[in-house]
C-alpha cells in the first residue's frame, strides 16, 4: 500500500485584490497505517491543503503553482481530471467537517454508498447493496439493511458522519483525508467516531491525514504532527516530541493556551498569544508569526527555512535554529 507524500506544494488565490499565497511550500508525508495530524488555527490553510491533495480546489480562484502530491509513483497534482476521477474516492478519499451538507439530501444514504461501489468497483445491483449494508455495519450503524433507505435528514449528525466514513472507505483507500471530521459533533459522539477511524485504520492499514484545530484530538490520534501557520508548515515531528519539546514559539503558544486536563484549575491563568492570525493579504515579510512572537528579532524579517533540529523533528524558526539577531 502506498503512503502520501506532499512535496513543496504551493497554492495561490487569484482574487480581485491580488494574488494571495494560500499555501507556501507545504511538505507532508503519511505512511501506511500511520496518522499525521495537521493542526493550526482557522484560516491557516488546512482545508486548502486537503482540497489540493484531492484536486478539489475551487479553480478559480485557487491554483496549484508548484509542488507534487505523490501517491506511490503517481503525482496527483499533475494528473488530468479524467484520470483523477479514477483515484478520488478510490485510492484517496476524503471526509468533510459538516456531514449534513456533504451528503446529498434527496438521495437515500444506501444509494449514495452504492454509487461509489458502482463507479469504482464495478459492483451492481444485489452485490452493491449487500456491500453497502456491510459497510454501514462496519461503521457501527445498527440495523443496516433498513437504514439503506433512510434519507440523511432523518439521521443524527453522528450517524451522517458514519455514513460519510462508510462512503469514504468503501473502496479501501490507501489514504484517507479527514478534514475536522468531529468538530460539529458532541464529545461523546466524537469519541465514537475517533475510535471508529482508529479501528478501520488498524484493519485496512490506510494512511490517515487528520485535520483538526483541537490539540486534544491530536494527542489522542496522531503518530506525527504538522503545525501550520499562515499557509506554511512551521513545525513537524513525532507527537510526543511536539507536545513534550515543541520547537516553534507558535506551537509552544498553542500548547500553553490549551488546558490539558487535570492541571489547570480555576485559578491558573491560561497563557495567551497576543494579537490574532494575520490575513493572507497582510502577511508580514519573512516569518508570518514574528509580530506575535516573544522571541522575534531582526533576523525574522527573512523567511526561516524548515530545518531538522532533532530526530524527525523540524521547525522553521530562527530563534529555534539559534540564529542571532544580527545574522540576517
Amino acid at each position: 500500500m502506498a503512503g502520501l507524500d506532499v512535496r513543496g506544494l504551493s497554492v495561490s488565490l487569484y482574487t480581485r485584490g491580488g494574488v494571495l499565497p494560500a499555501l507556501s511550500e507545504v511538505s507532508l508525508s503519511v505512511q501506511p497505517g500511520r496518522t499525521l495530524a495537521l493542526v493550526g488555527e482557522s484560516g491557516c490553510g488546512k482545508s486548502m491543503t486537503a482540497l489540493a491533495i484531492m484536486r478539489l480546489l475551487p479553480e478559480p480562484p485557487a491554483r496549484i503553482i508548484a509542488g507534487q502530491v505523490m501517491l506511490g509513483d503517481t503525482d496527483l497534482a499533475a494528473l488530468p481530471e479524467r484520470r483523477m476521477l479514477g483515484v478520488r474516492g478510490k485510492a484517496v478519499s476524503m471526509i468533510f467537517q459538516d456531514p449534513m451538507s456533504s451528503l446529498n439530501p434527496v438521495v437515500p444514504v444506501g444509494q449514495q454508498i452504492m454509487e461509489v461501489l458502482r463507479r469504482h468497483e464495478n459492483l451492481s445491483g444485489r452485490a452493491a447493496r449487500t456491500r453497502a449494508a456491510e459497510l454501514l455495519t462496519l461503521v457501527g450503524i445498527p440495523d443496516a439493511e433498513a437504514r439503506l433507505a433512510e434519507y440523511p435528514h432523518r439521521l443524527s449528525g453522528g450517524m451522517c458522519q458514519r455514513v460519510m466514513i462508510a462512503i469514504a472507505i468503501a473502496c479501501r483507500p490507501a489514504v484517507l483525508v479527514a478534514d475536522e471530521p468531529t468538530t460539529a459533533l458532541d464529545v461523546t459522539v466524537q469519541a465514537q467516531i475517533l475510535e471508529l477511524l482508529k479501528r478501520l485504520q488498524a484493519e485496512t492499514g490506510m494512511a490517515l491525514l487528520l485535520i483538526t484545530h483541537d490539540l486534544g484530538v491530536v494527542a489522542e490520534m496522531a503518530d506525527e504532527v504538522a503545525v501550520m501557520y499562515a499557509g506554511r508548515v512551521v513545525e513537524q515531528g513525532p507527537v510526543d516530541a511536539i507536545f513534550a519539546a515543541p520547537l516553534h514559539p507558535y506551537t509552544r503558544g498553542l500548547l500553553g493556551a490549551t488546558p490539558s486536563g487535570g492541571t489547570a484549575g480555576r485559578h491558573t491563568r491560561l497563557a495567551d498569544i497576543p494579537g490574532s492570525v494575520p490575513s493572507l493579504a497582510e502577511l508580514p515579510a519573512g516569518c508570518a508569526f514574528a509580530p506575535r512572537c516573544p522571541l522575534a528579532h531582526a533576523a525574522c524579517t527573512a523567511q526561516p527555512p524548515l530545518t531538522t533540529l532533532a530526530p524527525q523533528h523540524l521547525a522553521a524558526c530562527f530563534a529555534a535554529l539559534g540564529v542571532p539577531a544580527h545574522a540576517a
Partner: peptide, 20 residues
C-alpha cells in the same frame, strides 16, 4: 472520559469509556 486530553502519554494510558 470522552473529552480528549492534550497529552499523548496520558491519552494512550488512560482507560476510556465510550458511550454507546
Amino acid at each position: 472520559s470522552a473529552a480528549p486530553v492534550a497529552n499523548p502519554a496520558l491519552a494512550r494510558s488512560r482507560q476510556r469509556v465510550v458511550l454507546q
